[in-house]
Nucleic acid binder design. Structure first.
Lengths: 249, 249
DNA sequence: GTATTTCAATACGATACCGTCTCGTATTGT
DNA sequence: ACAATACGAGACGGTATCGTATTGAAATAC
């Protein structure tokens, strides 16, 4: 529960308070580390970078071996990392906090889109998704983490806000640019357009993990969505016909 | 491990073998219950339907309360159901077996497509997905089960083969019919077409659980995919232009 | 040199769960 | 009546994990 500091005990840490209190007016350097990596530990033995790495790598290794997220106990992580449990508890108050850091280590942020052409950016994004999908198939780690993320709201939230949302925003922006440039129709909601492009790609990468991820897939999706599925060799004779006609609505 | 029958012990059930052996040539009615619900228990007190219902409902209730799948222990289920643990072990050898049955109870099989018009069937399928998505938003149960399914290969496999695959096959067949009827272009892979329709719907229902699921969404998706996103008011002037042009490939 | 802090290791009490077994009772076929 | 089976309840011996505490060594600041 307690974040990190405060070497004393939880219930009987009172004995230390006198000392701490008698240390008189140490102000600016005595700040409680609110969050993140604190600055200078400044007194005793510094925390071992090696231990930190070992811990993160242990989690990664276990996940890579196909261990489900729930199967990772602090004890097992400590054992695997060759580290005392306290060393973990000293850094992360929570298993989820630890996983958040792991996630940050293994999921590099999406490279920013070039911003040149809207259509080109859409393509780049789909290609990036394709590569991420391929990576997930080759890595039990990524697959596992992704599969189990929804179980842990914090993790899912983190992934959502660091990967999914930014991509959605970026692609939607690219769509708007494409619309403005006359590359895409202006009479359809940009959000819907974004989904028309991203949805099929996602279906392949996430939902159908046995389907191939050919390298021309992004291109084929974009091409088909652009041209539309109405028959007529692209000449599109009957544009007046209701596309939902005969669909029961 | 052992399916259900055989009241005796696991390690010291040998004592019963003599009796069983000495029962001479009882053939056709002595069959081991291979799977499913066996027919006539035929001797002692019959199994309580009420207990069975109580167990399944207990699982459902716990999941509805947001309990993660991993948080469901046999003990807890038994406690919640007001049932002895043995009563559970008597029916299901495995937690996963139990969950499979639960899954069967809460996920009614997809209604068969009408088979009239290909496009109409595609629409019907998207609409069915939309409804399923709405149900998942209102039910912590469905959400949880779905979210955690990938963790448990058996469950995921069951869902895949009872829901996802049949739908994929059905929609793909509908696509083929639509192509044959001249409702869809014939020069694009039917599987890809299926993904173009289903993908965007899935994106909304699964991935973006905060986005609305308006009732005109299936129609809008179908319309947009049919018409294509190339600008030009549907008249599609420049069909010769490469849709992937300027995309960096 | 001394105080402080971290280190790995491990002991500790608490808790939860597993799967089997037993108990006394209830409900069925023969 | 009697044998067989199911029932709820829970005891039982194991195992695993939790989060805290202790220990003796090591590393650093003052």
């Amino acid at each position: 529960m307690r974040p990190a500091r405060g070497g004393g005990g939880g219930t009987k840490g009172e004995a230390l308070r006198d000392q701490e209190h008698g240390q008189e007016h140490g102000q600016e350097h005595d700040r409680e580390p609110v969050h993140g990596h604190e600055r200078e530990p400044r007194r005793g033995r510094p925390r071992s970078e090696a231990a930190e790495r070992a811990i993160l790598q242990a989690v990664v290794r276990l996940l890579e071996e196909g261990e489900p997220l729930a199967g990772l106990s602090i004890e097992r992580i400590a054992r695997t990392a060759g580290v005392g449990k306290a060393t973990i508890y000293r850094r992360w108050s929570d298993k989820e906090e630890l996983f958040m850091d792991v996630l940050r280590h293994i999921e590099p942020p999406e490279p920013p889109l070039s911003g040149t052409s809207g259509l080109a950016d859409i393509f780049a994004s789909l290609e990036s998704m394709r590569r991420r999908g391929l990576a997930q198939r080759n890595s039990a780690l990524l697959y596992n983490v992704f599969a189990q993320m929804k179980t842990h709201p914090k993790l899912w939230g983190a992934y959502q806000s660091t990967v999914i949302e930014p991509r959605r925003v970026a692609v939607t922006a690219a769509v708007r640019r494409a619309v403005a440039a006359g590359e895409l129709r202006a009479d359809i909601d940009a959000e819907l357009i974004e989904e028309l492009f991203v949805g099929p790609m996602l279906l392949r990468t996430i939902h159908r993990k046995e389907a191939p991820l050919d390298d021309d897939l992004p291109e084929r999706i974009i091409r088909a969505v652009l041209e539309g599925l109405r028959p007529g060799d692209g000449k599109t004779g009957d544009t007046a016909a209701d596309p939902a006609a005969g669909t029961g609505r």
